[in-house]
């Protein structure tokens, strides 16, 4: 009887820790998303304040006609160069980049978490999702 109870207790402890680990992973994912959005926001705000202080009184561009952005705002290299020369619009665009990267980082972290849990099925599923996004980023679908 006694041994039965202790073994049950150990069992309960075991499931407790498993659930705890899973909740830890979920909490980290939540924290990652929050931090990403918050950082992106701060960067966009800094760029925006700089933009308004430099060009606030200028007339706004005509957005009725679509021209598309120049290479300084659409390539990683372009944005980074602008960032280090402290150009207001490049700083905003860097914040935009951080915002887009945040959910992608979440996928990458989930891949790691599923690998730690040794959940092979979900490691494969996560890799497929990550693969599609990387394909979308680097395949030159921009046309």
């Amino acid at each position: 009887m006694d041994t039965n109870i202790t073994s049950k207790k150990i069992d309960m402890k075991k499931t407790d820790t498993v659930i705890l680990q899973e909740r830890d992973v979920e909490k980290t994912v939540g924290k990652l998303l929050r931090t990403g959005v918050f950082t992106a926001c701060i960067v966009v705000l800094i760029g925006g304040i700089l933009l308004l202080s430099q060009y606030g009184t200028c007339a706004m561009p005509d957005y009725r006609v679509f021209k598309g952005e120049g290479s300084e705002f659409i390539t990683f290299d372009g944005i980074i160069v602008g960032l280090f020369t402290f150009k207001a619009m490049a700083i905003i665009q860097f914040g935009v980049l951080l915002l887009i990267i945040t959910p992608i980082l979440r996928i990458a972290f989930s891949l790691f978490a599923f690998a730690v849990e040794k959940d092979r099925l979900y490691v494969v599923i996560t890799m497929i999702v990550l693969g599609i996004i990387l394909f979308s980023t680097f395949s030159g679908l921009k046309i």
């Binding site: 992106a40 966009v44 120049g70 705002f73 665009q93 935009v96 959910p103 979440r106 979308s136």
Partner: peptide, 28 residues
């Protein structure tokens, strides 16, 4: 939604659809 939007956002960013002057007030 975030991951789905990011999958096409990487394409639209490279196509030049994302303008910093519009992005700044919209995001905040």
């Amino acid at each position: 939604i975030g991951v789905t939007a990011a999958a096409s956002a990487v394409v639209y960013l490279q196509r030049g659809y994302m303008d910093p002057i519009i992005a700044f007030p919209v995001v905040l």
